[in-house]
Nucleic acid binder design. Structure first.
Length: 430
DNA sequence: GGGTATGATTCGCG
DNA sequence: CGCGAATCATACCC
């Protein structure tokens, strides 16, 4: 410090007369008696500035300080600030005033709509409710747990978002303060106008807001993923419970000739299995196609259910025909209207199990179910398969070239004597 | 972990 | 609109 003071004074006795911030050259007045001296002075200063880089660090430091304390400094700074203002800053300033980013607005809107941004209470649950409404049906309790799950996750996202946002804001403020202090500090040693500081602050804010936008964007993505997970039922697939599968299988195998449950039957099955009608439809759709694709694989299962149905049928003592009650799906499997005297005809009509096609007999449901049942019982014993294969020709109209379930009228041989050929099948809601 | 089973979705067809 | 077929995504089992 002492050395600096010495240096400072060594330069034409220049003191610290100048008031920082004031245009010193104006204060000096126009009295030009020492004009030459001042010119000499300025030349001196400039010389010092120009050569400062050639000096050693210590020397330069000392010289710098001396210059800083020079009475001409404020004036020089003022001029430099003006020049800066007119050149660099004005160029930068041209692109400063921008309209709010449309993408940012979109993100903001979305976050608001999803209940992530905006008021703390209600937003999340409202969004969850909306999402739930969009997801459509589904079983009640299952749905409510899904709700809370969704809400919990959304709250988590919300919390993270707000925490991060706060962090960013804090960091932004800290950084801004830091930079402002730094600039203020530096403004003592280099020409920095307050306007420039203001601009710098703006730049910092813009940078931070772009970071914020990234945060918003990733938050939006997270919400979208959550939403899609919540809405996409495939992702929350649960196997039906054993009982439900049994009920469905029972129906399927006891209606193997025409496994197309009517709407009423689907509702009934849905009720029994605690699943929706749509799920019943899905199940039957899948079952049909998969059964048809690989009958061999399902053989055992088919036999099992067939045997079970057969047992049920034999055990059931009631023999009142329920063929005309299409809305009772289980009537087919459990009703005891099966007439053994028909068995011969039934056997004759049963098709080969190795083939792709089935007979879509439009006989009474009970009779038909017994046909299906017995077909498997027979196949299990391996009794009639060859003969039955040959008998396919017996009912040519029952064979579908594409291997689909045939909906053609029943061959007369299967027609139950108690029910006319036109009796309603339990599967069809016609 | 990989293979299989299974519920759901999508698409084209009649 | 219901169906078959293909496909996806997950559950389940070894």
């Amino acid at each position: 410090m002492d050395e600096q003071t010495r240096l400072m004074h060594s330069h034409s006795g220049v003191g610290m007369a100048g008031h920082p911030g004031l245009p010193q050259h104006m204060q000096e007045g126009t009295g030009g008696s020492d004009g030459d001296g001042r010119k000499q002075d300025i030349g001196d200063i400039l010389q010092q500035i120009m050569t400062i880089t050639d000096q050693s660090l210590d020397e330069a430091q000392a010289r710098k300080h001396a210059l800083n304390c020079h009475r001409m400094k404020p004036a020089l700074f003022n001029v430099l600030c003006e020049i800066k203002e007119k050149t660099v800053l004005s160029i930068r300033g041209a692109q400063e005033e921008e309209p709010p980013d449309p993408q940012l607005m979109r993100l903001d809107n979305m976050l608001l709509a999803e209940g992530v941004a905006g008021p703390e209470k209600g937003g999340g649950s409202a969004a969850a409710a909306a999402a739930a409404a969009a997801s459509g049906g589904g079983s009640g309790p299952e749905n409510s747990t899904e709700h809370s799950d969704y809400r919990t996750k959304l709250t988590q996202i919300r919390q993270i978002y707000h925490t991060e946002l706060e962090k960013y804001e804090q960091a932004c403020n800290e950084f801004t303060t830091h930079v402002m202090n730094l600039l203020r500090e530096q403004s003592r040693t280099r020409p920095i106008s307050p306007k420039e500081i203001e601009r710098m602050v703006n730049i910092i804010h813009r940078k931070f807001s772009s970071i914020q936008m990234q945060l918003k964007q990733s938050t939006c993505e997270a919400v979208m993923i959550l939403r899609s997970r919540f809405l996409d039922a495939r992702r929350k697939r649960r196997n039906f419970n054993k009982q439900a599968t049994e009920i469905l299988n029972e129906y399927f195998y006891s209606h193997l000739s025409n496994p197309y449950p009517s709407e009423e039957a689907k509702e009934e099955l849905g009720k029994k299995c605690a699943i929706t009608v749509a799920q019943v439809s899905n199940w039957f759709g899948n079952k049909r196609i998969r059964y048809k694709k690989n009958i061999g694989k399902f053989q055992e299962e088919a036999n099992m259910y067939a045997a079970r149905t057969a047992v049920n049928a034999t055990n059931a003592s009631s023999h009142g025909s329920q063929a005309n009650s299409p809305s009772t799906p289980n009537s087919a499997g459990s009703a005891g209207s099966f007439n053994m005297s028909n068995s011969g005809d039934l056997f004759m009509s049963v098709q080969s199990l190795n083939g792709d096609s089935y007979q879509g007999a439009q006989v009474g449901a009970n009779v038909q179910s017994q046909v299906d049942t017995l077909r498997h019982v027979i196949s299990q014993t391996g009794g009639y398969s060859e003969g039955l294969t040959a008998n396919q020709m017996y009912s040519p109209q029952g064979i579908n070239a594409n291997g689909g379930w045939q909906e053609a009228p029943t061959p007369s041989s299967v027609t139950s004597p108690t029910e006319g050929p036109g009796s309603v099948h339990s599967d069809t809601s016609n």
